[in-house]
């Protein structure tokens, strides 16, 4: 009668549930997207719409906007689960919490960052980026945004028990975002000046794999701590 649950089952159940929840609240999916677009819109308004200037700083603008959008949405990663008690449910399973945490982060990335990937080319065109550079931008976003979610997860878990975690979250997270921002924007810079980008991209891949293997551990530890 007793049927045990496999790790793979649990892993996919966590992702599926979060996707289903996102679907139930689909009106909220637009929020990070709208934020991303609006931040980008502010730059030409502040700097003036000179084409050569915009073209040069477009990758930086898009990346900073993606970073801020990720920071804004990451706050919700564990909040609802913490408030309604499902976090306890997730801890009290036979499976390692860090793996389930990874599933949560992947779900969150699919919900909040993947839509940005689709709209980023459009933004690039509005800022007069060239088509092949937009391709590089997409690649860096694809490799970089999961890292942002993974690192952000640690800080969210650490500030979960705090009532006013918002500003603190930004202070904790942004310094840790620096390397990925540097590698991503320098990859695009290299592409724009006609240099090889494979070095930058392999660096980003390395960081991504490092983040996938390492970040769930402190996140899980911090989550358990927040339940005390």
């Amino acid at each position: 009668m007793k049927k045990t649950s496999s790790l793979l089952n649990a892993f996919s159940a966590v992702i599926k549930r979060d996707l289903l929840l996102a679907y139930r609240f689909r009106a909220e999916l637009i929020n990070p997207l709208a934020f991303f677009v609006m931040v980008i819109t502010l730059f030409p308004l502040a700097l003036g719409a000179e084409i050569t200037l915009l073209k040069r700083i477009a990758p930086a603008i898009i990346w900073v906007a993606a970073l801020l959008a990720s920071l804004m949405s990451i706050e919700n990663l564990f909040r609802a689960d913490y408030d309604d008690g499902s976090l306890e449910l997730m801890v009290m399973t036979p499976h390692p919490l860090s793996i389930l945490v990874l599933a949560k982060v992947i779900g969150h990335w699919l919900i909040s960052s993947v839509p940005l990937l689709f709209i980023a080319p459009l933004m690039g065109m509005m800022l007069h980026m060239e088509t092949d550079i937009i391709g590089v931008l997409m690649l860096t976003l694809l490799l970089g945004t999961p890292v942002l979610s993974l690192i952000g997860g640690i800080a969210v878990a650490l500030t979960l028990g705090l009532r006013k975690g918002g500003a603190l979250l930004a202070i904790l997270v942004l310094p840790l975002y620096v390397p990925i921002l540097i590698f991503a924007s320098s990859a695009i810079d290299a592409a724009m000046t006609g240099f090889a980008i494979s070095g930058h991209l392999s660096m980003m891949c390395a960081i991504l794999f490092l983040a996938i293997t390492l970040t769930p551990l402190p996140t899980a530890a911090a989550l358990k701590m927040s339940l005390s």
């Binding site: 007793k2 049927k3 045990t4 649950s5 089952n9 649990a10 996919s12 159940a13 966590v14 549930r17 289903l20 929840l21 139930r24 609240f25 609802a80 408030d83 309604d84 008690g85 499902s86 306890e88 449910l89 997730m90 009290m92 399973t93 036979p94 499976h95 389930l100």
Partner: peptide, 27 residues
């Protein structure tokens, strides 16, 4: 463990909630 909160997702149906719990533990 059942605490002050029930650990249920109010936006999911009863069945979806239980199916999730079963996927995480033995049935």
């Amino acid at each position: 463990y059942i605490g002050h909160n029930n650990g249920l997702k109010v936006a999911l149906t009863a069945q979806e909630n239980l199916r999730y719990a079963q996927a995480l533990s033995s049935t």
